[in-house]
């Protein structure tokens, strides 16, 4: 409705959820940022979200907090797999 181009892209596909970073919190709303674009979102479903956390944003709501330790674990696993496959 009233967002810039990036938002047009982000809005594509209503099932989409994208990771955005929380830059400030105000009750059950938060200011978030992705690629330089800021947006106020509801954090009513993620009361545990803290400043600096990445949340999955879906149609204006944070639906989950990204687990950074798990994210790193997954990347480590992927790198391990890649290095093993290089040996062959």
């Amino acid at each position: 409705m009233y967002y810039g181009l990036t938002w047009a892209k982000i809005q594509e596909g209503m099932c989409l959820a994208i990771p955005v970073r929380i830059v400030s919190i105000d009750g059950d709303e938060a200011e978030t940022e992705i690629a330089g674009v800021r947006r106020r979102v509801s954090i009513a479903f993620t009361p545990e979200a803290k400043l600096g956390d990445y949340v999955l944003l879906h149609t204006g709501y944070a639906i989950g907090v990204i687990d950074e330790a798990e994210a790193e674990e997954t990347l480590k696993l992927l790198e391990e797999i890649a290095s093993l496959s290089e040996v062959h």
Partner: peptide
Amino acid sequence: MKFIDEYQDSKLARGLAY
């Protein structure tokens, strides 16, 4: 973008495909 770009790496993709 964090949590997006790193999961698009082509070298890692080839490793997994293998």
